[in-house]
């Protein structure tokens, strides 16, 4: 069976009703505009392993952050799973986190009108002089017009192989580091993918490149060669990998209101908007839209708990 992919916002996606079940084997075929053809070796869908429990523990010194030049606080998320004994299992975890966004826009040296930050000079050039220079603040913050959630993603490659723990039931594994960017409550949506041995090896090289590169024993970086090849030229190095991962998902709501440590991002929860500029048809404005996208949504996450 051949399934065509279609282009959506710089991504190529299969049809929405397309699904894969355990044991199926698929190949990816790519033909570029200039006729070069690439193909993957067959990739097998391995059975997902269900997550029996998800929990998080807070650590005021979760990890050393080089940008902060100090240890930073955050939660470590753990899952418990029953590792199947019959096979070698390889796991990959990714997450999306949702937190309520209060301030949807901040304009530095500018004000928010018509969906963008406009500098005062530009504003006055357009609408005539109407700004009292003594009243200008360095920046203006606008609350979200309606419910809005900030989406963040995992920043590390979290993988695990059961080479030393095959068949262990109730295996508790740390699968995500969620830094305390803000102290707003947070919902984690975790996906646990099952990989093949080759897929795991590829993600381990990726992990070495992305996460394990700043240490005394940093492995020298390697090319991300996966399972893709040029059909006409076996000597061409093709980067990237066609990976099938069947996922189990779990969600966890984390209440962070009682945490004492300062968050990594400046707190913007008490916004006193002083943008009172108006004139020539423009109104005083204190809010901004949610701007849906990869990093924001106004769609309430299904496991969100209101408080």
């Amino acid at each position: 069976m051949e399934v065509p992919f279609s282009e959506v916002e710089e991504s190529y996606l299969p049809p929405e009703d397309f699904s894969i079940t355990t044991g199926e084997s698929w190949e990816l075929h790519i033909t570029l505009e200039d006729g070069r053809r690439y193909q993957s070796t067959p990739e097998m869908a391995t059975s997902p392993v269900s997550i029996s429990e998800i929990e998080a523990s807070y650590n005021p010194e979760l990890e050393f952050n080089i940008n902060e030049d100090d240890f930073v606080p955050g939660h470590k998320v753990f899952v418990t799973l029953d590792d199947p004994a019959a096979e070698d299992n390889f796991y990959l975890w990714r997450y999306r986190s949702f937190e309520r966004l209060i301030a949807c826009e901040t304009c530095a040296g500018a004000i928010f009108r018509d969906g963008e930050c406009i500098s005062f000079e530009e504003y006055e050039a357009q609408f005539g002089p109407c700004i009292d220079e003594n009243a200008i603040e360095p920046e203006y913050t606008y609350t979200c017009e309606r419910n809005c959630w900030r989406i963040r993603f995992n920043e590390k490659i979290e993988i695990f192989s059961d080479e030393f723990t095959n068949g262990v039931s109730g295996n508790r594994l740390g699968v995500a580091d969620v830094l305390l960017y803000t102290k707003n409550n947070l919902l984690i949506e975790l996906q646990q993918y099952s990989l093949t041995a080759e897929g795991y090896r590829y993600f381990r090289i990726l992990k070495d490149i992305v996460d394990n590169n700043g240490n005394f024993n940093a492995p020298p970086p390697a090319a991300l060669l996966g399972n893709m090849f040029n059909v006409e030229d076996s000597e061409e190095f093709v980067l990237g990998r066609f990976t099938i991962g069947l996922a189990s998902t779990a969600s966890l709501f984390i209440d962070r209101t009682a945490i004492e440590e300062d968050p990594l991002e400046p707190e913007r929860n008490n916004i006193e908007t002083s943008d009172l500029f108006s004139g020539n048809g423009l109104k005083v404005r204190s809010t901004a839209p949610c701007s849906e996208g990869r990093f924001r949504t106004s769609v309430r996450p299904s496991d969100w708990i209101d408080n």
Binding site: F153, N154, E155, I157, L206, I209, P221, A222, L224
Partner: peptide
């Protein structure tokens, strides 16, 4: 997932 990986 938004991770930027250097290519070697």
């Amino acid at each position: 997932d938004g991770i930027r990986a250097p290519i070697f």
